[in-house]
Design a protein around this nucleic acid. Structure first.
Lengths: 296, 296
DNA sequence: GCCAGTCCATGCAAGAATGCATAGCATGGA
DNA sequence: TCCATGCTATGCATTCTTGCATGGACTGGC
Protein backbone atom coordinates (compact mmCIF):
# COMPACT_ATOMS: atom_id res chain seq x y z
CA UNK A 1 0.00 0.00 0.00
CA UNK A 2 1.07 3.52 -0.70
CA UNK A 3 0.92 5.53 2.47
CA UNK A 4 2.05 8.76 0.90
CA UNK A 5 -1.54 9.82 0.44
CA UNK A 6 -2.03 9.85 4.19
CA UNK A 7 0.95 12.03 4.88
CA UNK A 8 -1.12 15.03 5.87
CA UNK A 9 -1.12 15.80 9.56
CA UNK A 10 -3.83 13.73 11.22
CA UNK A 11 -3.97 15.98 14.26
CA UNK A 12 -4.84 18.86 12.02
CA UNK A 13 -7.67 16.78 10.61
CA UNK A 14 -8.91 16.33 14.14
CA UNK A 15 -8.72 20.07 14.72
CA UNK A 16 -10.78 20.61 11.59
CA UNK A 17 -13.33 17.98 12.57
CA UNK A 18 -13.91 19.35 16.05
CA UNK A 19 -14.00 22.92 14.78
CA UNK A 20 -16.60 22.04 12.17
CA UNK A 21 -18.69 20.15 14.71
CA UNK A 22 -18.40 22.70 17.48
CA UNK A 23 -18.77 25.72 15.23
CA UNK A 24 -15.78 27.78 16.28
CA UNK A 25 -12.10 27.57 17.06
CA UNK A 26 -12.72 28.60 20.62
CA UNK A 27 -15.38 25.99 21.20
CA UNK A 28 -13.19 23.32 19.60
CA UNK A 29 -10.27 24.37 21.76
CA UNK A 30 -12.40 24.06 24.88
CA UNK A 31 -13.70 20.68 23.76
CA UNK A 32 -10.22 19.33 23.15
CA UNK A 33 -8.63 20.99 26.13
CA UNK A 34 -6.04 22.89 24.11
CA UNK A 35 -5.68 26.55 23.26
CA UNK A 36 -7.63 28.47 20.66
CA UNK A 37 -4.60 29.76 18.76
CA UNK A 38 -3.38 26.21 18.37
CA UNK A 39 -6.67 25.07 16.85
CA UNK A 40 -6.76 28.04 14.53
CA UNK A 41 -3.23 27.45 13.37
CA UNK A 42 -3.77 23.74 12.90
CA UNK A 43 -6.78 24.32 10.69
CA UNK A 44 -4.92 26.99 8.75
CA UNK A 45 -2.00 24.60 8.31
CA UNK A 46 -4.34 21.87 7.10
CA UNK A 47 -5.83 24.25 4.56
CA UNK A 48 -2.36 25.05 3.30
CA UNK A 49 -1.32 21.40 3.40
CA UNK A 50 -4.29 20.16 1.37
CA UNK A 51 -4.43 23.35 -0.70
CA UNK A 52 -8.11 23.92 -0.03
CA UNK A 53 -10.22 26.50 1.78
CA UNK A 54 -12.10 24.87 4.65
CA UNK A 55 -13.60 27.87 6.41
CA UNK A 56 -14.38 31.37 5.34
CA UNK A 57 -13.40 33.74 8.13
CA UNK A 58 -16.36 36.04 8.33
CA UNK A 59 -16.15 38.44 11.21
CA UNK A 60 -17.68 36.67 14.13
CA UNK A 61 -17.48 32.91 13.67
CA UNK A 62 -16.62 30.74 10.72
CA UNK A 63 -18.45 29.59 7.64
CA UNK A 64 -17.79 26.08 6.36
CA UNK A 65 -17.11 26.12 2.62
CA UNK A 66 -18.46 23.57 0.17
CA UNK A 67 -15.00 22.04 -0.01
CA UNK A 68 -14.84 21.90 3.76
CA UNK A 69 -18.18 20.16 3.81
CA UNK A 70 -16.98 17.55 1.34
CA UNK A 71 -13.90 16.88 3.41
CA UNK A 72 -15.85 16.80 6.64
CA UNK A 73 -17.80 13.90 5.22
CA UNK A 74 -14.62 11.83 5.27
CA UNK A 75 -12.99 13.27 8.36
CA UNK A 76 -16.01 12.40 10.46
CA UNK A 77 -15.61 8.60 10.07
CA UNK A 78 -11.96 9.15 10.91
CA UNK A 79 -13.04 10.63 14.21
CA UNK A 80 -15.52 7.85 14.84
CA UNK A 81 -12.78 5.29 14.32
CA UNK A 82 -10.58 7.27 16.68
CA UNK A 83 -13.23 7.07 19.36
CA UNK A 84 -13.34 3.31 18.94
CA UNK A 85 -9.56 3.17 19.21
CA UNK A 86 -9.70 5.11 22.41
CA UNK A 87 -12.50 3.02 23.88
CA UNK A 88 -10.78 -0.20 22.90
CA UNK A 89 -7.53 0.92 24.45
CA UNK A 90 -9.29 1.83 27.68
CA UNK A 91 -11.19 -1.45 27.60
CA UNK A 92 -8.01 -3.43 27.33
CA UNK A 93 -7.18 -2.52 30.89
CA UNK A 94 -10.68 -3.20 32.13
CA UNK A 95 -12.26 -6.10 30.31
CA UNK A 96 -11.25 -9.33 31.89
CA UNK A 97 -12.56 -11.80 29.33
CA UNK A 98 -10.14 -13.39 26.90
CA UNK A 99 -7.34 -15.86 26.56
CA UNK A 100 -4.31 -16.38 28.74
CA UNK A 101 -1.62 -18.82 27.70
CA UNK A 102 0.31 -20.53 30.49
CA UNK A 103 3.48 -22.42 29.78
CA UNK A 104 4.73 -24.91 32.34
CA UNK A 105 7.02 -27.87 32.60
CA UNK A 106 5.26 -31.15 31.98
CA UNK A 107 5.25 -32.27 35.58
CA UNK A 108 3.66 -29.05 36.81
CA UNK A 109 1.21 -29.03 33.95
CA UNK A 110 0.16 -32.59 34.74
CA UNK A 111 0.19 -32.76 38.52
CA UNK A 112 -0.05 -29.20 39.85
CA UNK A 113 -1.86 -26.92 37.46
CA UNK A 114 -5.08 -28.79 36.62
CA UNK A 115 -6.82 -28.15 39.96
CA UNK A 116 -5.63 -24.56 40.00
CA UNK A 117 -6.93 -23.97 36.48
CA UNK A 118 -10.21 -25.64 37.41
CA UNK A 119 -10.74 -23.27 40.35
CA UNK A 120 -9.74 -20.28 38.23
CA UNK A 121 -12.21 -21.24 35.54
CA UNK A 122 -14.89 -21.54 38.19
CA UNK A 123 -14.31 -18.10 39.63
CA UNK A 124 -13.61 -16.40 36.27
CA UNK A 125 -15.52 -18.22 33.51
CA UNK A 126 -14.67 -15.47 31.02
CA UNK A 127 -10.98 -16.22 31.13
CA UNK A 128 -9.93 -18.97 28.76
CA UNK A 129 -6.76 -20.80 29.70
CA UNK A 130 -4.41 -22.36 27.21
CA UNK A 131 -1.96 -24.68 28.91
CA UNK A 132 1.27 -25.41 27.10
CA UNK A 133 3.10 -28.34 28.70
CA UNK A 134 6.65 -28.28 27.49
CA UNK A 135 10.06 -28.47 29.00
CA UNK A 136 11.30 -26.06 26.37
CA UNK A 137 11.20 -22.57 27.79
CA UNK A 138 8.57 -20.66 25.86
CA UNK A 139 9.67 -17.25 24.70
CA UNK A 140 7.46 -14.69 26.36
CA UNK A 141 9.06 -11.99 24.25
CA UNK A 142 7.63 -13.66 21.17
CA UNK A 143 4.33 -14.13 22.94
CA UNK A 144 4.55 -17.89 22.76
CA UNK A 145 2.93 -17.69 26.16
CA UNK A 146 1.65 -15.05 28.57
CA UNK A 147 2.79 -16.65 31.80
CA UNK A 148 5.55 -19.18 32.30
CA UNK A 149 5.93 -21.43 35.34
CA UNK A 150 9.60 -22.23 35.61
CA UNK A 151 12.18 -23.38 38.12
CA UNK A 152 14.59 -20.61 37.31
CA UNK A 153 14.66 -16.88 37.03
CA UNK A 154 14.34 -15.60 33.46
CA UNK A 155 17.35 -13.88 32.01
CA UNK A 156 15.54 -11.16 30.06
CA UNK A 157 15.35 -8.07 32.25
CA UNK A 158 12.22 -6.76 30.48
CA UNK A 159 10.16 -9.64 31.83
CA UNK A 160 8.30 -9.56 35.10
CA UNK A 161 9.34 -12.41 37.42
CA UNK A 162 8.36 -13.48 40.89
CA UNK A 163 9.55 -16.43 42.96
CA UNK A 164 6.43 -17.99 44.42
CA UNK A 165 7.77 -21.10 46.09
CA UNK A 166 10.86 -22.85 47.42
CA UNK A 167 10.17 -26.52 46.73
CA UNK A 168 12.30 -29.56 47.31
CA UNK A 169 13.12 -32.53 45.08
CA UNK A 170 14.45 -35.96 45.93
CA UNK A 171 15.75 -38.98 44.16
CA UNK A 172 13.11 -41.67 43.69
CA UNK A 173 13.18 -45.29 42.54
CA UNK A 174 11.22 -48.47 43.07
CA UNK A 175 12.15 -50.52 46.18
CA UNK A 176 12.81 -53.37 43.82
CA UNK A 177 15.36 -51.36 41.85
CA UNK A 178 17.02 -50.13 45.01
CA UNK A 179 17.27 -53.67 46.28
CA UNK A 180 19.07 -54.63 43.11
CA UNK A 181 21.48 -51.77 43.79
CA UNK A 182 22.06 -53.13 47.28
CA UNK A 183 19.80 -50.73 49.12
CA UNK A 184 22.17 -47.76 48.99
CA UNK A 185 22.46 -45.59 52.09
CA UNK A 186 25.22 -43.17 51.11
CA UNK A 187 25.87 -41.01 48.09
CA UNK A 188 28.76 -43.20 47.12
CA UNK A 189 26.46 -46.20 46.95
CA UNK A 190 24.62 -44.57 44.07
CA UNK A 191 27.59 -44.17 41.78
CA UNK A 192 26.69 -47.44 40.09
CA UNK A 193 23.01 -46.54 39.70
CA UNK A 194 21.20 -45.81 36.50
CA UNK A 195 19.67 -42.35 36.37
CA UNK A 196 17.04 -41.02 34.05
CA UNK A 197 18.25 -37.92 32.22
CA UNK A 198 16.52 -35.21 30.22
CA UNK A 199 19.14 -34.67 27.56
CA UNK A 200 22.81 -35.24 26.81
CA UNK A 201 23.95 -31.98 28.39
CA UNK A 202 25.73 -32.34 31.73
CA UNK A 203 23.67 -29.80 33.59
CA UNK A 204 21.89 -32.41 35.64
CA UNK A 205 25.12 -34.34 36.34
CA UNK A 206 26.85 -31.25 37.60
CA UNK A 207 23.88 -30.37 39.75
CA UNK A 208 23.73 -33.80 41.35
CA UNK A 209 27.47 -33.96 41.85
CA UNK A 210 27.38 -30.57 43.49
CA UNK A 211 25.01 -32.14 46.05
CA UNK A 212 27.57 -34.77 46.94
CA UNK A 213 27.13 -37.51 44.36
CA UNK A 214 29.83 -38.53 41.95
CA UNK A 215 28.26 -39.38 38.62
CA UNK A 216 29.43 -39.55 35.04
CA UNK A 217 27.49 -39.67 31.77
CA UNK A 218 27.66 -43.44 32.07
CA UNK A 219 25.15 -43.20 34.87
CA UNK A 220 22.57 -41.90 32.37
CA UNK A 221 21.89 -44.72 29.97
CA UNK A 222 18.30 -43.69 29.40
CA UNK A 223 17.56 -40.24 28.03
CA UNK A 224 13.95 -39.17 27.88
CA UNK A 225 13.00 -35.63 26.91
CA UNK A 226 9.47 -35.99 28.19
CA UNK A 227 9.42 -35.67 31.96
CA UNK A 228 6.17 -37.58 32.34
CA UNK A 229 7.52 -40.56 30.45
CA UNK A 230 10.67 -40.34 32.51
CA UNK A 231 8.69 -40.51 35.70
CA UNK A 232 6.68 -43.42 34.37
CA UNK A 233 9.90 -45.28 33.61
CA UNK A 234 11.12 -44.65 37.13
CA UNK A 235 7.87 -46.02 38.54
CA UNK A 236 8.40 -49.18 36.53
CA UNK A 237 11.86 -49.69 38.02
CA UNK A 238 14.05 -48.60 35.11
CA UNK A 239 16.19 -46.28 37.21
CA UNK A 240 16.51 -43.37 39.56
CA UNK A 241 14.62 -40.18 38.84
CA UNK A 242 14.72 -36.77 40.47
CA UNK A 243 11.30 -35.48 41.33
CA UNK A 244 9.64 -32.91 43.54
CA UNK A 245 8.39 -34.30 46.82
CA UNK A 246 4.80 -33.29 46.12
CA UNK A 247 4.74 -35.72 43.23
CA UNK A 248 7.19 -38.32 44.44
CA UNK A 249 6.08 -38.92 48.03
CA UNK A 250 2.42 -39.82 47.28
CA UNK A 251 3.46 -42.31 44.61
CA UNK A 252 3.21 -45.80 46.22
CA UNK A 253 5.40 -47.52 43.69
CA UNK A 254 8.56 -45.54 44.47
CA UNK A 255 10.50 -44.49 47.54
CA UNK A 256 13.22 -41.96 48.19
CA UNK A 257 16.54 -43.42 47.11
CA UNK A 258 18.49 -41.85 49.97
CA UNK A 259 16.48 -40.92 53.02
CA UNK A 260 19.19 -38.96 54.78
CA UNK A 261 20.37 -37.09 51.75
CA UNK A 262 19.63 -33.34 51.61
CA UNK A 263 16.93 -32.44 49.12
CA UNK A 264 17.56 -30.53 45.93
CA UNK A 265 16.16 -27.00 46.09
CA UNK A 266 13.59 -26.37 43.35
CA UNK A 267 12.29 -22.84 43.31
CA UNK A 268 9.21 -21.96 41.30
CA UNK A 269 9.25 -18.74 39.33
CA UNK A 270 6.30 -17.08 37.70
CA UNK A 271 7.25 -15.06 34.66
CA UNK A 272 5.16 -12.82 32.43
CA UNK A 273 5.58 -9.97 30.00
CA UNK A 274 5.10 -6.25 30.47
CA UNK A 275 1.41 -6.34 29.80
CA UNK A 276 0.94 -7.53 33.36
CA UNK A 277 0.76 -3.87 34.20
CA UNK A 278 -2.01 -3.03 31.75
CA UNK A 279 -4.04 -6.19 31.32
CA UNK A 280 -6.34 -6.86 34.21
CA UNK A 281 -6.96 -10.34 32.90
CA UNK A 282 -3.29 -11.19 32.97
CA UNK A 283 -2.97 -9.72 36.42
CA UNK A 284 -5.80 -11.88 37.74
CA UNK A 285 -4.32 -15.11 36.42
CA UNK A 286 -0.82 -14.20 37.52
CA UNK A 287 -1.89 -13.36 41.05
CA UNK A 288 -4.00 -16.48 41.31
CA UNK A 289 -1.13 -18.68 40.19
CA UNK A 290 1.21 -16.98 42.60
CA UNK A 291 -1.23 -17.50 45.46
CA UNK A 292 -2.03 -21.14 44.73
CA UNK A 293 1.53 -22.17 43.97
CA UNK A 294 2.83 -20.62 47.17
CA UNK A 295 0.18 -22.43 49.19
CA UNK A 296 0.65 -25.99 47.96
CA UNK B 1 -20.24 15.24 21.75
CA UNK B 2 -17.37 14.59 24.08
CA UNK B 3 -14.12 14.87 22.17
CA UNK B 4 -11.94 14.09 25.16
CA UNK B 5 -11.86 10.46 24.19
CA UNK B 6 -10.07 11.33 20.97
CA UNK B 7 -7.37 13.36 22.65
CA UNK B 8 -4.65 10.83 21.90
CA UNK B 9 -2.22 11.90 19.21
CA UNK B 10 -3.66 10.92 15.84
CA UNK B 11 -0.27 11.06 14.14
CA UNK B 12 0.97 8.44 16.54
CA UNK B 13 -1.97 6.28 15.54
CA UNK B 14 -0.83 6.66 11.96
CA UNK B 15 2.68 5.65 12.93
CA UNK B 16 1.28 2.57 14.63
CA UNK B 17 -0.91 1.69 11.67
CA UNK B 18 1.85 1.94 9.10
CA UNK B 19 4.29 0.09 11.34
CA UNK B 20 1.84 -2.75 11.86
CA UNK B 21 1.10 -2.95 8.15
CA UNK B 22 4.69 -2.65 6.99
CA UNK B 23 6.11 -4.89 9.68
CA UNK B 24 8.90 -2.72 11.05
CA UNK B 25 9.70 0.82 12.13
CA UNK B 26 12.22 1.17 9.35
CA UNK B 27 9.81 0.06 6.65
CA UNK B 28 7.12 2.36 8.03
CA UNK B 29 9.57 5.24 8.10
CA UNK B 30 10.45 4.65 4.47
CA UNK B 31 6.78 4.38 3.51
CA UNK B 32 5.91 7.64 5.21
CA UNK B 33 9.04 9.47 4.22
CA UNK B 34 10.12 10.25 7.76
CA UNK B 35 12.92 8.92 9.91
CA UNK B 36 12.97 5.61 11.72
CA UNK B 37 13.68 7.05 15.19
CA UNK B 38 10.63 9.26 14.81
CA UNK B 39 8.37 6.33 14.01
CA UNK B 40 9.77 4.33 16.88
CA UNK B 41 9.29 7.18 19.31
CA UNK B 42 5.78 7.91 18.08
CA UNK B 43 4.71 4.32 18.62
CA UNK B 44 6.37 4.24 22.01
CA UNK B 45 4.59 7.46 22.91
CA UNK B 46 1.25 6.03 21.78
CA UNK B 47 1.82 2.97 23.93
CA UNK B 48 2.47 5.19 26.91
CA UNK B 49 -0.44 7.47 26.02
CA UNK B 50 -2.97 4.64 25.76
CA UNK B 51 -1.27 2.61 28.49
CA UNK B 52 -1.06 -0.53 26.38
CA UNK B 53 1.69 -2.62 24.81
CA UNK B 54 1.36 -2.61 21.04
CA UNK B 55 4.53 -4.36 19.96
CA UNK B 56 6.90 -6.72 21.68
CA UNK B 57 10.44 -5.72 20.78
CA UNK B 58 12.06 -9.01 20.00
CA UNK B 59 15.54 -8.55 18.65
CA UNK B 60 15.16 -8.31 14.95
CA UNK B 61 11.76 -6.93 14.06
CA UNK B 62 8.62 -6.47 16.08
CA UNK B 63 5.81 -8.71 17.23
CA UNK B 64 2.29 -7.32 17.34
CA UNK B 65 0.63 -8.08 20.67
CA UNK B 66 -2.97 -9.20 21.06
CA UNK B 67 -3.79 -5.74 22.34
CA UNK B 68 -2.07 -4.21 19.35
CA UNK B 69 -4.10 -6.41 17.09
CA UNK B 70 -7.34 -5.31 18.73
CA UNK B 71 -6.41 -1.66 18.33
CA UNK B 72 -5.24 -2.15 14.77
CA UNK B 73 -8.72 -3.28 13.94
CA UNK B 74 -9.97 0.22 14.70
CA UNK B 75 -6.97 2.20 13.53
CA UNK B 76 -7.19 0.67 10.08
CA UNK B 77 -10.58 2.27 9.24
CA UNK B 78 -9.09 5.51 10.52
CA UNK B 79 -6.42 5.21 7.89
CA UNK B 80 -8.91 4.31 5.20
CA UNK B 81 -10.92 7.42 6.02
CA UNK B 82 -7.71 9.43 5.90
CA UNK B 83 -7.02 8.18 2.40
CA UNK B 84 -10.47 9.30 1.37
CA UNK B 85 -9.84 12.71 2.92
CA UNK B 86 -6.65 13.02 0.97
CA UNK B 87 -8.22 11.89 -2.28
CA UNK B 88 -11.16 14.20 -1.81
CA UNK B 89 -8.90 17.13 -1.09
CA UNK B 90 -6.87 16.42 -4.20
CA UNK B 91 -10.05 15.90 -6.20
CA UNK B 92 -11.35 19.32 -5.18
CA UNK B 93 -8.75 20.87 -7.41
CA UNK B 94 -9.46 18.45 -10.23
CA UNK B 95 -13.14 17.56 -10.43
CA UNK B 96 -14.98 20.15 -12.39
CA UNK B 97 -18.59 19.12 -11.83
CA UNK B 98 -20.67 21.00 -9.32
CA UNK B 99 -22.44 24.26 -8.61
CA UNK B 100 -21.24 27.79 -9.14
CA UNK B 101 -23.32 30.71 -7.94
CA UNK B 102 -23.04 33.95 -9.92
CA UNK B 103 -24.39 37.18 -8.54
CA UNK B 104 -25.03 40.06 -10.94
CA UNK B 105 -26.99 43.28 -11.15
CA UNK B 106 -30.42 42.80 -12.63
CA UNK B 107 -29.58 44.41 -15.96
CA UNK B 108 -26.57 42.20 -16.55
CA UNK B 109 -28.43 39.14 -15.34
CA UNK B 110 -31.26 39.87 -17.75
CA UNK B 111 -29.54 41.19 -20.88
CA UNK B 112 -25.91 40.04 -20.78
CA UNK B 113 -25.48 36.82 -18.87
CA UNK B 114 -28.10 34.46 -20.34
CA UNK B 115 -26.26 33.80 -23.64
CA UNK B 116 -22.94 33.47 -21.80
CA UNK B 117 -24.41 31.00 -19.36
CA UNK B 118 -26.00 29.10 -22.25
CA UNK B 119 -22.66 28.69 -24.00
CA UNK B 120 -20.96 27.73 -20.74
CA UNK B 121 -23.57 25.07 -20.07
CA UNK B 122 -23.03 23.74 -23.57
CA UNK B 123 -19.27 23.38 -23.23
CA UNK B 124 -19.34 22.25 -19.57
CA UNK B 125 -22.60 20.40 -18.89
CA UNK B 126 -21.30 19.24 -15.49
CA UNK B 127 -21.19 22.76 -14.14
CA UNK B 128 -24.50 23.93 -12.74
CA UNK B 129 -25.00 27.67 -12.67
CA UNK B 130 -27.09 29.48 -10.12
CA UNK B 131 -27.76 33.05 -11.17
CA UNK B 132 -28.68 35.55 -8.48
CA UNK B 133 -30.04 38.77 -9.96
CA UNK B 134 -29.88 41.44 -7.31
CA UNK B 135 -28.65 44.96 -6.99
CA UNK B 136 -27.62 44.22 -3.42
CA UNK B 137 -23.99 43.26 -3.39
CA UNK B 138 -23.82 39.63 -2.36
CA UNK B 139 -21.29 38.88 0.33
CA UNK B 140 -18.73 36.51 -1.13
CA UNK B 141 -17.15 36.19 2.29
CA UNK B 142 -20.33 34.57 3.53
CA UNK B 143 -20.52 32.49 0.37
CA UNK B 144 -23.76 34.05 -0.73
CA UNK B 145 -22.24 33.69 -4.17
CA UNK B 146 -19.07 32.37 -5.75
CA UNK B 147 -18.62 35.04 -8.41
CA UNK B 148 -20.01 38.56 -8.45
CA UNK B 149 -20.38 40.74 -11.54
CA UNK B 150 -20.22 44.32 -10.33
CA UNK B 151 -19.46 47.83 -11.57
CA UNK B 152 -17.03 48.58 -8.77
CA UNK B 153 -13.97 47.09 -7.18
CA UNK B 154 -14.71 45.16 -3.99
CA UNK B 155 -13.37 46.62 -0.79
CA UNK B 156 -12.37 43.37 0.92
CA UNK B 157 -8.70 42.73 0.19
CA UNK B 158 -9.09 38.95 0.65
CA UNK B 159 -11.25 38.71 -2.47
CA UNK B 160 -9.92 38.15 -5.97
CA UNK B 161 -11.00 40.92 -8.37
CA UNK B 162 -10.39 41.61 -12.02
CA UNK B 163 -11.66 44.48 -14.21
CA UNK B 164 -12.89 42.85 -17.40
CA UNK B 165 -14.48 45.74 -19.26
CA UNK B 166 -14.74 49.52 -19.52
CA UNK B 167 -18.31 50.14 -20.61
CA UNK B 168 -20.23 53.35 -21.16
CA UNK B 169 -23.66 54.47 -20.06
CA UNK B 170 -25.93 57.22 -21.37
CA UNK B 171 -29.12 58.96 -20.42
CA UNK B 172 -32.14 57.55 -22.23
CA UNK B 173 -35.76 58.64 -22.58
CA UNK B 174 -38.61 58.35 -25.05
CA UNK B 175 -38.67 60.97 -27.89
CA UNK B 176 -42.11 61.89 -26.66
CA UNK B 177 -40.87 62.68 -23.15
CA UNK B 178 -37.91 64.65 -24.50
CA UNK B 179 -40.26 66.68 -26.70
CA UNK B 180 -42.28 67.53 -23.62
CA UNK B 181 -39.04 68.74 -22.01
CA UNK B 182 -38.41 70.96 -25.04
CA UNK B 183 -35.90 68.66 -26.74
CA UNK B 184 -32.95 69.50 -24.46
CA UNK B 185 -29.53 69.92 -26.04
CA UNK B 186 -27.41 71.02 -23.08
CA UNK B 187 -26.92 69.78 -19.58
CA UNK B 188 -28.69 72.79 -18.24
CA UNK B 189 -31.77 71.94 -20.23
CA UNK B 190 -32.16 68.77 -18.19
CA UNK B 191 -32.37 70.41 -14.79
CA UNK B 192 -36.14 70.36 -15.04
CA UNK B 193 -36.30 66.72 -16.15
CA UNK B 194 -37.61 63.78 -14.15
CA UNK B 195 -35.02 61.09 -13.52
CA UNK B 196 -35.54 57.54 -12.38
CA UNK B 197 -33.54 56.76 -9.23
CA UNK B 198 -32.56 53.58 -7.41
CA UNK B 199 -32.88 54.79 -3.86
CA UNK B 200 -33.00 57.92 -1.73
CA UNK B 201 -29.25 58.16 -1.32
CA UNK B 202 -27.57 60.94 -3.26
CA UNK B 203 -24.91 58.77 -4.86
CA UNK B 204 -26.49 58.95 -8.28
CA UNK B 205 -27.15 62.72 -8.03
CA UNK B 206 -23.53 63.38 -7.11
CA UNK B 207 -22.33 61.22 -9.96
CA UNK B 208 -24.49 62.96 -12.53
CA UNK B 209 -23.65 66.42 -11.23
CA UNK B 210 -19.97 65.54 -11.40
CA UNK B 211 -20.51 64.96 -15.12
CA UNK B 212 -21.84 68.50 -15.62
CA UNK B 213 -25.51 68.30 -14.73
CA UNK B 214 -27.03 70.22 -11.87
CA UNK B 215 -29.70 68.10 -10.23
CA UNK B 216 -31.35 67.98 -6.83
CA UNK B 217 -33.45 65.28 -5.12
CA UNK B 218 -36.47 67.00 -6.66
CA UNK B 219 -35.38 65.66 -10.02
CA UNK B 220 -36.01 62.11 -8.76
CA UNK B 221 -39.73 61.82 -8.13
CA UNK B 222 -39.83 58.15 -8.98
CA UNK B 223 -37.69 55.72 -6.99
CA UNK B 224 -37.57 52.14 -8.17
CA UNK B 225 -35.23 49.64 -6.57
CA UNK B 226 -35.60 47.15 -9.38
CA UNK B 227 -33.48 48.22 -12.32
CA UNK B 228 -35.56 46.24 -14.82
CA UNK B 229 -38.74 47.95 -13.73
CA UNK B 230 -36.96 51.26 -13.85
CA UNK B 231 -35.93 50.67 -17.42
CA UNK B 232 -39.46 49.63 -18.33
CA UNK B 233 -40.77 52.88 -16.88
CA UNK B 234 -38.30 54.85 -18.95
CA UNK B 235 -39.41 53.02 -22.08
CA UNK B 236 -42.97 54.06 -21.31
CA UNK B 237 -42.05 57.72 -21.09
CA UNK B 238 -42.05 58.23 -17.33
CA UNK B 239 -38.63 59.89 -17.23
CA UNK B 240 -34.94 59.82 -17.93
CA UNK B 241 -32.93 56.70 -17.09
CA UNK B 242 -29.23 56.01 -17.11
CA UNK B 243 -28.39 52.82 -18.96
CA UNK B 244 -25.44 51.11 -20.59
CA UNK B 245 -25.25 51.63 -24.31
CA UNK B 246 -25.43 47.92 -25.06
CA UNK B 247 -28.91 47.86 -23.61
CA UNK B 248 -30.06 51.38 -24.39
CA UNK B 249 -29.04 51.82 -28.02
CA UNK B 250 -30.89 48.77 -29.45
CA UNK B 251 -34.10 49.75 -27.73
CA UNK B 252 -36.31 51.43 -30.39
CA UNK B 253 -38.61 53.17 -27.95
CA UNK B 254 -35.93 55.37 -26.40
CA UNK B 255 -33.14 57.65 -27.60
CA UNK B 256 -30.16 59.25 -25.92
CA UNK B 257 -31.27 62.33 -24.02
CA UNK B 258 -28.14 64.33 -24.84
CA UNK B 259 -26.25 63.22 -27.91
CA UNK B 260 -23.19 65.40 -27.38
CA UNK B 261 -22.82 64.66 -23.70
CA UNK B 262 -19.84 62.53 -22.63
CA UNK B 263 -20.82 59.03 -21.54
CA UNK B 264 -20.65 57.78 -17.97
CA UNK B 265 -17.84 55.28 -17.47
CA UNK B 266 -19.16 51.93 -16.22
CA UNK B 267 -16.44 49.40 -15.52
CA UNK B 268 -17.26 45.75 -15.01
CA UNK B 269 -15.47 43.90 -12.23
CA UNK B 270 -15.44 40.19 -11.68
CA UNK B 271 -15.02 39.22 -8.06
CA UNK B 272 -14.62 35.84 -6.43
CA UNK B 273 -13.31 34.31 -3.25
CA UNK B 274 -9.99 32.66 -2.51
CA UNK B 275 -11.07 29.26 -3.73
CA UNK B 276 -10.43 30.48 -7.25
CA UNK B 277 -6.93 29.20 -6.68
CA UNK B 278 -7.97 25.68 -5.67
CA UNK B 279 -11.25 25.00 -7.44
CA UNK B 280 -10.83 24.24 -11.10
CA UNK B 281 -14.58 24.56 -11.58
CA UNK B 282 -14.57 28.08 -10.22
CA UNK B 283 -11.57 28.94 -12.34
CA UNK B 284 -13.30 27.74 -15.51
CA UNK B 285 -16.40 29.83 -14.92
CA UNK B 286 -14.43 32.87 -13.85
CA UNK B 287 -12.19 32.78 -16.89
CA UNK B 288 -15.12 32.22 -19.23
CA UNK B 289 -17.00 35.19 -17.76
CA UNK B 290 -13.92 37.37 -18.03
CA UNK B 291 -13.43 36.37 -21.64
CA UNK B 292 -17.02 36.82 -22.73
CA UNK B 293 -17.60 40.04 -20.84
CA UNK B 294 -14.47 41.66 -22.30
CA UNK B 295 -15.55 40.72 -25.80
CA UNK B 296 -19.08 42.07 -25.84
C1' DG C 1 -25.84 54.19 20.91
C1' DC C 2 -23.10 52.14 24.28
C1' DC C 3 -21.26 48.17 26.60
C1' DA C 4 -20.31 43.52 27.83
C1' DG C 5 -19.31 39.18 25.94
C1' DT C 6 -17.22 36.37 22.52
C1' DC C 7 -14.63 35.51 18.62
C1' DC C 8 -10.23 35.28 15.62
C1' DA C 9 -5.32 36.83 14.76
C1' DT C 10 -0.50 37.61 16.19
C1' DG C 11 4.11 38.34 18.88
C1' DC C 12 6.99 36.00 21.93
C1' DA C 13 9.11 32.62 24.98
C1' DA C 14 9.13 27.79 26.56
C1' DG C 15 8.66 23.16 25.47
C1' DA C 16 8.33 19.14 22.38
C1' DA C 17 9.18 16.66 18.21
C1' DT C 18 12.32 15.65 14.56
C1' DG C 19 16.50 14.21 11.94
C1' DC C 20 21.27 12.85 11.86
C1' DA C 21 24.82 10.06 13.34
C1' DT C 22 25.92 6.11 15.69
C1' DA C 23 25.94 2.15 18.79
C1' DG C 24 24.28 -2.43 19.71
C1' DC C 25 22.24 -6.61 18.23
C1' DA C 26 19.94 -10.42 15.73
C1' DT C 27 19.63 -13.04 11.44
C1' DG C 28 21.02 -15.61 7.36
C1' DG C 29 24.49 -17.22 4.24
C1' DA C 30 29.38 -18.42 2.72
C1' DT D 1 32.68 -19.31 12.49
C1' DC D 2 32.76 -15.03 10.49
C1' DC D 3 30.78 -11.44 7.84
C1' DA D 4 27.29 -8.62 5.63
C1' DT D 5 22.79 -6.86 6.14
C1' DG D 6 18.98 -4.86 8.31
C1' DC D 7 16.76 -3.83 12.52
C1' DT D 8 15.96 -0.94 16.97
C1' DA D 9 17.65 2.41 20.55
C1' DT D 10 19.85 6.75 22.02
C1' DG D 11 22.51 11.40 22.38
C1' DC D 12 22.44 15.91 20.54
C1' DA D 13 21.50 20.08 17.82
C1' DT D 14 17.84 22.09 15.25
C1' DT D 15 13.27 23.06 13.90
C1' DC D 16 8.60 23.17 14.74
C1' DT D 17 4.69 23.54 17.78
C1' DT D 18 2.29 25.17 21.67
C1' DG D 19 0.47 28.35 25.22
C1' DC D 20 0.05 32.91 27.14
C1' DA D 21 -0.97 37.57 26.67
C1' DT D 22 -2.93 40.86 23.96
C1' DG D 23 -5.05 43.42 20.14
C1' DG D 24 -8.84 44.14 17.04
C1' DA D 25 -13.52 43.18 15.50
C1' DC D 26 -18.21 41.68 15.52
C1' DT D 27 -22.76 40.48 17.86
C1' DG D 28 -26.59 41.08 20.88
C1' DG D 29 -28.89 43.29 24.72
C1' DC D 30 -30.12 47.35 27.42
Amino acid sequence: MDWRSTTFDWNRARAFLVTAEEGSFSAAARALGISQPTIGRQVAALEQELDVVLFERVGHGLQLTATGNDLLEHVRPMGEAAVRVSLTAAGQSLSIDGQVCISAAEIEAFYVLPPIVARLRESHPGIEIELVATNATSDLGRREADIAVRSFRPKQPELVARKVRDGRAWLYATPDYLARLGNPTTAADLSKGQFLGFDRSDTLIKGLNAMGLSLTPDNFPVIVGNQLVQWELAKQGVGICIMTEEVGDPEPRVVRALEDFPPFPVPTWLTTHRELNTSRRLRVVFDRLAEELSAC
